[in-house]
Design a protein around this nucleic acid. Sequence first.
DNA 1: ACCTGAACACCGTTCAAGT
DNA 2: ACCTGAACACCGTTCAAGT
Lengths: 189, 189
Amino acid sequence: MVEETKSKLGREAWIGAALAAISREGVRAVRVEALARELGVTKGSFYWHFRDRAALLDAVLETWERRGTTRVIERVEAGTPTGAQRLERLVEIAFATDEVDRIEAGIRAWGASDGRASVVLRRTDARRLDYVTEILVGAGLDRRTAKKRAHILFLALIGDFTFRAHGGGGSSRQVRKELVELLLVGTPL
Amino acid sequence: MVEETKSKLGREAWIGAALAAISREGVRAVRVEALARELGVTKGSFYWHFRDRAALLDAVLETWERRGTTRVIERVEAGTPTGAQRLERLVEIAFATDEVDRIEAGIRAWGASDGRASVVLRRTDARRLDYVTEILVGAGLDRRTAKKRAHILFLALIGDFTFRAHGGGGSSRQVRKELVELLLVGTPL
DNA sequence: ACCTGAACACCGTTCAAGT
DNA sequence: ACCTGAACACCGTTCAAGT
């Protein structure tokens, strides 16, 4: 199961290096030999921590889902009680850094051609959508309107990431943040 | 007197082998060494015909566009004069074999993660859409209705291929053919 | 013009051997 | 427990040399 190591370099170091590679050049850059070079170890040592390259990629998806969805929801829930505040806090946390943004784009591009990534993406999208809907309901919107707004928001965000992944450019983090706020606090659709 | 096909294979042989590989296992199966083995030559000889692997993939896209769009339109135009007949003929030619189907699916999956393939796919879709629209207009539909029907038809077909590419299964060739006929001759939308 | 054979660089994977 | 070093298989690319 999950064991942690702190003295030497453990699974987290490899996962972290893989995520960084994805954010820079996409999944294809996740190569055992290249990561080993970066981490200053032999590629042979990789196989102590992972069965093979596929196992690393699975761990990457798991970490991404936890950090980008599970943990974000937990942090919002832990820190802020009232409905309207949750939204602000969620947007703040979710759009934290450009690095997180680039990883998201890389994983979406990956999901277009890989079954495992695509499964995680679909589940992640569903969980995020449900959570935003619940927040909106908690803020006083009726469920029907909440669902509609959350849905449009997600289509726009996913479309933006997909567009960017295909080299289309995409919006800046700031623009996306404003889009979210507009859709969530704007006039009813 | 054993073999005489040993030497003198040209670009077409490599392109054909690449297309076959795509239909079976996707673009990732297009490997110089594997194709050389199949063709019974040394991989070194590949580089007489192509600058590198990327050049082969470009040639594959070019051939696919010609055979699957340009040439299909030419054949329909050459053989059949009246509007209604063109549709029948187009459907017949376009849905000719399962092999062609599998290649289409493979190239769409490829386009999801590759810029060059994606450009060709977009252009191909636009040309096919325009052609079907023109046929419908020629068959007596007003342009607005023709565009609408052609558009829905294409979204459904592309969606089906994308779904299949993601391992979702997709429809059989026969089912797709019936869908086309239903959308083109059915009641106005 | 077309192909072979050998070379080189790069990568995934395994494993005995070290600490 | 964690890592090295060497090995093997596979692949893309180059090139001198053959026909």
